[in-house]
């Protein structure tokens, strides 16, 4: 009888305060864990975006470096947003940014013959593709993309043309 009344008496204010403190400490630990997990998730996402950009950059470099003639842009210190060139198989290709923010590579000959390889998406969520051609055999470019959280990533690279000696400068 005595035991039962003791177990039914509830908690004192001091006990409630102590429970609250314990709860707060646990919440603190949990919040800390979520904070670091969130940071880790953001970093992972950015790694993915930058790797996509790097792959795009490798693709641009591979295609351009063996091109035998650049039709656009001309040699100048201005900035442009497309590259029109002929590759080592003498096909007409163009790198351009479309209205859906995709950086594309269009192979005109393949596209004309309905080959699915005629239009390849190099990068998604691209907001800028800028090209400079300071010399006949050098193309400098950068690609800027924006991720789902509106964070921007930029990759800047350059391509030394290996096969343009016979046709350039024009």
């Amino acid at each position: 009888m005595k035991h039962q009344s003791r177990s039914n008496r509830g908690v004192t204010i001091v006990e409630a305060c102590i429970y609250a403190v314990i709860f707060a400490i646990f919440m603190g630990i949990a919040t800390g864990a979520f904070f670091w997990m969130r940071k880790s998730l953001d970093a992972t996402q950015k790694i993915g975006n930058l790797q996509d950009l790097r792959l795009a950059s490798i693709y641009v470099n591979n295609e351009l470096s063996y091109g035998n003639r650049i039709l656009f842009p001309p040699v100048s210190n201005d900035k442009y947003h497309q590259v029109l060139f002929k590759n080592d198989r003498n096909e007409l290709l163009v790198f351009f940014l479309d209205k859906d923010m995709r950086l594309n590579l269009l192979n005109y000959e393949k596209y004309k013959s309905n080959d699915p390889r005629g239009l390849i998406i190099i990068a998604n969520n691209a907001i800028e593709f800028t090209v400079e051609r300071p010399d006949a055999h050098l193309i400098k470019y950068f690609v800027r993309i924006r991720d789902e959280d509106n964070k921007e990533n930029v990759i800047a690279n350059a391509v030394k043309m290996r096969n343009t000696e016979t046709n350039e400068p024009w």
Partner: peptide, 11 residues
Amino acid sequence: FPVTLSIAERV
């Protein structure tokens, strides 16, 4: 790494 590698390539 991809950013610095690209910049180094560019240079």
